[in-house]
């Protein structure tokens, strides 16, 4: 028992360090990197993006080759307009956002499902620094994974696009902008996931809600006839994001999307609403 402490316990001395934001961020970073499942999923997301980009390059190449001989394919190609190779590096973004979104949900919901929350929020009773630290971590990770995955994908696609005489210049402004905007979008999904995980505190419920919001709602809105739903569909997160990533690209004829800046604002609105709601709920509810 003599190892317990060298001196008598001191009461609330002022020099002892407390949970500052940087310390909480450090603690959350330790938590993130000590979960093997998180590391594996993040690497999977990068690998998935690289692999999908290569597949997309192959498909696009075959499509353009067919367009050279088949007038029907040529018409379809013409209708797409713009630079057809532009979307190759970010071909897997809809899958990446699922992985990253689920991880972001778990970053907070697992605290509650495992009981870890009691330890976490005993150490940081103000609670909000924990949310802020997790938010920063998932947003940065989401962006880095999307960006590096897309760049790797672009590199993997190079020999394939060259085979089909297509051009994909990873250093070009258009390609960089497209990758950056997709990175911002996945980061926004991560923030929404963390918000939902904090609000619902239930992993399955929050992941299902996120998937419903991102993938199911657009389909439902498309199926319901009527002008209202056609118009409202533009304001759903996925559609707003689609508008945002078109920044600097000539719109496709008959596009059903908002202006890119409008899409960015709408997306930011969703993120802000969920994060503010999560903060209020975390502060108010019992752990």
């Amino acid at each position: 028992m003599s190892t317990l402490t060298s001196s008598a316990p001191a009461s609330s001395a002022n020099h002892v360090p407390g949970p500052s934001f940087l310390r909480v961020l450090n603690a959350e970073a330790i938590k993130t990197r000590t979960l093997l499942s998180t590391t594996i999923l993040l690497l999977c997301a990068v690998a998935l993006m690289a692999g999908f980009a290569a597949l997309q390059a192959w498909g696009t190449g075959e499509f353009t080759r067919a367009a050279a001989t088949d007038p029907e394919a040529a018409a379809a190609l013409a209708q797409q307009g713009g630079d057809i190779a532009l979307t190759i590096p970010t071909a897997a973004v809809s899958f990446t956002q699922l992985i990253i979104g689920a991880l972001a949900v778990l970053a907070m919901s697992s605290e509650f499902t495992t009981g870890m929350a009691r330890a976490t929020f005993s150490a940081v009773p103000q609670r909000l620094p924990v949310l802020a630290a997790k938010l920063l971590l998932v947003v940065v990770l989401a962006f880095v994974v999307t960006y590096s995955g897309a760049m790797l994908g672009g590199l993997a696609a190079q020999p394939i696009v060259q085979e089909y005489d297509l051009a994909l210049d990873l250093a070009s402004q258009d390609v960089q902008r497209s990758i950056l905007l997709n990175g911002v979008y996945v980061a926004a999904v991560a923030a929404m996931g963390l918000g939902l995980g904090t609000l619902l505190r239930n992993s399955a419920g929050a992941i299902v809600t996120l998937v419903a919001g991102l993938f199911v709602l657009p389909i439902i809105f498309q199926l319901i006839p009527g002008e209202f739903f056609e118009e409202a569909r533009k304001y759903l997160p996925t559609n707003a994001a689609s508008a945002m990533v078109q920044w600097g690209v000539d719109p496709v004829a008959g596009s059903q999307l908002l202006e890119p800046w409008q899409g960015a604002l709408i997306l930011a609105g969703y993120v802000a609403a969920l994060v503010v709601g999560a903060a209020a709920s975390l502060k108010a509810r019992d752990v």
């Binding site: 330790i30 000590t34 979960l35 499942s37 495992t114 330890a119 976490t120």
Partner: peptide
């Protein structure tokens, strides 16, 4: 009050 995927050391280290 522990995440089952972490070790005792990692849990205490994070706290």
């Amino acid at each position: 009050a522990v995440h089952p995927g972490r070790s005792a050391f990692q849990h205490l280290h994070a706290l």
